[in-house]
Each structure stands twice: as C-alpha cells, then as structure tokens.
Amino acid sequence: MNKVKITVLLSLLVIAFLLDVALGSVHIPVKEVISVLFTADSVNESWIYIIEKIRLPKAITAIVVGCGLSVSGLQMQTLFRNPLAGPSVLGITAGASLGVALVMFSVGSLTSLYTIRELGLSGSWLVIIASSLGAAIIMLLVVSISSSLKDNVIVLIVGVMIGNITLSLISIWQYFSAPELIKDYLMWTFGSLGGVTGNQLLILTIVISVGLVISFLSSKMLDALLLGDNYARSMGLTVKRARLIIVISTSILAGGITAFCGPIGFIGIAVPHLSRALFNTSSHRILIPACCLLGTVLMLSCDIIAQLPGSQTVLPINVITALVGSPVVIWIIAGPRKLRGF
C-alpha cells in the first residue's frame, strides 16, 4: 500500500517538476524542456538560458525548501508535542530573520536578498550561519520556557510573542533605515524561490542535506518523544541531548532556507499533517521521507501557481503558501478527522 502511495507521489513530483520548469512568462514546449534538461540542446538558444539559469535553479530551490521546511515543522511538532508548531509559528523564522538582519547591519549594508548575493561565497556562509544561530537561539528560548508549561496553547502563545519581540527588534532597525532598504526587506519577507543560483544553490543544498541527514538519524529519538519526556527518559533516551540535537537540525533547516528565500510560511505546519494522514503512521523513519516527498510536490505546485502561467506577473511565494496552507491548518483544528495529534 505504501509502495503505491510513494509511486504516485514520485510521479506527481516528476510532473510538478517538469511543469514548474516548463511554465512561466515565456512559453516553452514541454518537449523542448525535456530536450534542454537531458541534452542541453534546444531549437531556441534563449530557452536554454532561461531553463538553465532561471527555471531549473528555482525548481531545485523549491525542492530543497519543500524538504527542509516540512521536516523542520515535523520535528518541532514532535518536540513541542503541539500540532500547530512550525518554524513560522513559534518565532523560529523570525529568529533567523534577526540573524540575517544583524549580519547586514554589521556589514553596514541592507537586508535584502540582492545584497546577500553580492557578498559572494563567504558571505553566503556567513548569512546561513547567522540565520541558523538566530533560529537556534529563539528555539532554545522557546524550548526552555515551554518545558515548564504543560498547556499546548500557552506554549503556542509564548512562541508567537517571542516571534513578535524578535520582529519588533528588526522593525526598530528598519525604522532607522532608508526607505529603499525597507522596500528591499519587505520584498524579502514575501519569500522568493528565485535567484538562488550557482554556488549559493550548492551551499543551500549542502546545508539542507546535512540538516535532513541529522534529522533522519534522529528518527528513533523523535519516536520516543511522542510519549513525552518522562516516558522517553524511562526508555533510555537522554532527553536533554536529544532536544539539543533536534534544535540544531531544525535551526539548520529553517535558518538556511530563511537566509536565502525569506520567511516562507505554512509549509512547515501543513505538510507533516498531510504526511501523517496519508501514510497513517507516527513513525519518523517513514514520516521524514514522506514529508520530503509531499513538501516537494506542494512547494513545486505553489511555485507553478505563483507564476500565474501565461501571464507576465509572478506572485510572491508566501501569498500562495498561505492560500494553500491556511485551509490545511483549519482542517487540522476543526476538520472532521480531528488531526490534532502529532
């Protein structure tokens, strides 16, 4: 049964990937897309450029972002034992944003994707590290406050408030910045899969792969945490160490993606629930790959919609993830299946 589901998801992934590369403001026939992808050859020179330099990197970014955000959301839901936990909800992406903002500030420049890119290779690493550290610090803060709280809703509120504090710190800094810098920052907060190319894409892919591997190796620890800290401890888990490892991999995933693509919402909350519903399991050994598959398909689909195929306009990716993700969250809380579990 699972094999059928995986086969269907893999086919959807291939279709979504091809469509994502084929569709856009410039129409390129699917046949030509496949030709460019496999033989790097086409009847139209500019099509090769568009696909290799713009659309292919963007599709790969969508895959990386889909995997990373979904798995970081899954880990947070288990760690906080909270079905509504996710990187954008509990202030983790806000922490990452603060990290990015601080780097820009100390470099004496502005927080925009364009500047990050101008920093070159060492700059990319710097931004990723700052962003992951920012995410980790906020997450540790939320973890330490929430460990003494039993109520899920209160944990959620604490996370949201810490996120607000972080965002206001960024706002204070923005307030003293020039208007064009603020505009750049706002564009960044809309989220974007585009423009991550070459070495940056390589760095992003490496960082997210490392995060995913750590996460997969933690699947047994995550399973134990499903019953809560006390049971996990009684089964031989060193809870503090496990928490730290999970915080680290979650921060790498959410931080890395936020650094290059901006704070992208809803994927992190929605995909883990869809994966649990589809594969009907709580085992992280299955859920982590499932989140990667579903997250990728969803992210590619969001990107296809964002391009408004046939038109010259491209919508910000956050608009689409919110439109797709919010109904899923409502379905989690109020839907007939009551998927409030984690």
């Binding site: 699947s219 047994k220 499903l226 019953l227 006390n230 009684s234 888990l237």
Partner: peptide, 30 residues
C-alpha cells in the same frame, strides 16, 4: 514505567505505542 502522564493527544495507534517499549533493545533506527 507506567506514568500518569497523558499521552492521548497523539495520533498514535496502539501497536506503535506498545512497540515503543522495545526502544532500549532495538537498533539505531528503531
């Protein structure tokens, strides 16, 4: 241990919960 902690907010099925008892004995991936 069998504790008074509430575990029933989960999406867990019974077999999974019982199988978690093998945690200290099973391999690194569980």
């Amino acid at each position: 241990l069998v504790l008074t902690d509430d575990i029933r907010s989960g999406n867990l099925d019974v077999y999974t919960v019982i199988a978690l008892g093998r945690y200290p004995w099973s391999g690194w991936l569980g």
